[in-house]
Every structure is written in C-alpha cells, then in structure tokens.
Deep mutational scan, measured.
Amino acid sequence: KKKPLTQEQLEDARRLKAIYEKKKNELGLSQESVADKMGMGQSGVGALFNGINALNAYNAALLAKILKVSVEEFSP
C-alpha cells in the first residue's frame, strides 16, 4: 500500500497542475503529449498532477523543462 502524500507534496501537485492549466494552450500541450515527453502513460501524468503519486526530483525537473518554468515555481 502506498503512503499518502504529505501536505507539502499535495501543495506541490496543486501548484504544478495550476501551472500546467495556465500554460498548456500557450505551449500546445495535452496530458498525452506531456506523458509522451516523459516516457510514461497519460494516467501517470494525471496521478502526478492530481496528487495521487508523489513527484520525484527527476519527474519534477522534466516537468519544469516541458512547462518552461523552474522547479521552485511549483515545489519551493
């Protein structure tokens, strides 16, 4: 059984999803295209955005690059 995410991890996910929602049209992104760039399925990206799975440093760095932001913008 997976450990529930901490409040901090949930807040990171909320900020990440908000940045994605704000930038997806400008950058021409969908959850599917983000998933392709990350080498995972769309459901995996959804789980990161919705605070189901915790972000690790690798995925955080990859998402920051895809969204053209710094990791600190969603994970201070």
Rank of each mutant, 00 (worst) to 15 (best):
V69D: 08
K17F: 10
I19E: 05
F74I: 14
K2C: 06
L63P: 08
L48P: 05
N56Y: 01
E11T: 07
S30Y: 00
A57D: 12
Q42V: 15
N25P: 04
N59S: 12
D36G: 10
V71N: 05
K1G: 13
P4Q: 14
V69C: 14
L16S: 04
S33D: 13
K23T: 02
L62R: 14
A64Q: 04
K17R: 12
G41R: 14
K68M: 08
A47P: 04
K22G: 07
K17V: 08
E21G: 04
F49C: 07
N53D: 15
S30D: 12
G51S: 01
N56K: 05
M38C: 08
N56Q: 05
R14N: 06
E8W: 09
R14G: 09
L16M: 03
E73F: 04
E11L: 11
P4A: 15
N50H: 09
L29I: 10
E8C: 08
V34D: 03
I52W: 09
M40I: 14
K68R: 11
K22V: 07
G46Y: 15
K23D: 02
A61C: 11
S33P: 03
Y58L: 10
P76K: 05
L67C: 03
R15I: 02
S75D: 02
E26A: 11
A61N: 14
N25C: 12
L5G: 07
E21C: 10
K22L: 11
E73M: 04
S30P: 01
R15D: 00
A64G: 10
T6C: 09
S70Y: 00
F49D: 07
K1T: 11
N25W: 11
V71D: 06
L5F: 06
A13S: 09
Y58D: 15
E72F: 11
N25F: 12
P4T: 15
L62F: 06
A61K: 13
R15W: 00
E8M: 08
A57V: 12
S75Q: 02
L48R: 05
S75L: 00
A64E: 02
K22H: 10
K24F: 05
V71E: 08
V69G: 06
K3H: 13
F49Y: 02
N56A: 01
G39N: 12
G46N: 15
F49R: 04
V69K: 02
S30Q: 05
A13Q: 06
N25T: 12
G41D: 15
K2A: 09
V45Y: 01
E32Y: 06
E72G: 13
I19M: 05
P76I: 02
L29F: 05
E11C: 11
K22W: 03
I19H: 03
D36S: 13
G39E: 09
A60S: 10
Q42R: 13
A57W: 10
L27C: 03
E21H: 11
L48W: 04
G46I: 14
Y20M: 08
G44Q: 15
K23C: 02
I52L: 13
E26T: 11
F49H: 04
V34K: 03
K37M: 15
S43T: 12
L16R: 03
E26Q: 13
V45G: 02
A57G: 11
K3D: 12
G44T: 14
G44H: 14
E11P: 01
L16G: 03
V45K: 03
L62M: 14
V34E: 02
Q42T: 15
G28E: 08
E73P: 00
L16W: 02
A61L: 09
L55M: 10
N53S: 13
N56T: 13
N59M: 06
Q9E: 12
A60V: 01
V69F: 01
V45T: 05
A60Q: 00
E72W: 11
S30M: 02
Q42P: 15
A47W: 01
N25V: 13
A47K: 15
R14V: 09
A18P: 01
K3G: 11
L63F: 11
S75M: 06
E11A: 14
L62K: 15
E8F: 04
A57F: 11
G44C: 13
N59D: 10
L10Q: 12
F74H: 01
E72A: 15
P76V: 06
M40F: 07
K2Q: 12
L27Q: 07
D12C: 09
E73N: 08
E21V: 09
S75T: 01
G44W: 07
S30E: 04
M40A: 06
L10G: 05
A60F: 03
L10T: 10
L63N: 05
R15Y: 01
E72M: 10
I66P: 10
Y20W: 13
E11I: 05
I66R: 07
K37T: 10
V69E: 04
A57N: 11
S43R: 12
A18Y: 08
S30A: 05
L67Q: 09
Y20N: 01
Q9W: 02
A47E: 13
N50L: 03
N53H: 13
G51N: 05
V45D: 07
G28N: 12
L5Q: 06
E8Q: 09
Q42M: 15
V71T: 08
E73T: 06
I66F: 04
G51V: 00
K23F: 01
D12T: 12
G51Y: 00
R14Q: 12
K2P: 08
Y20Q: 02
V69R: 04
A18R: 11
V45E: 08
E73H: 05
K68Y: 01
P4E: 14
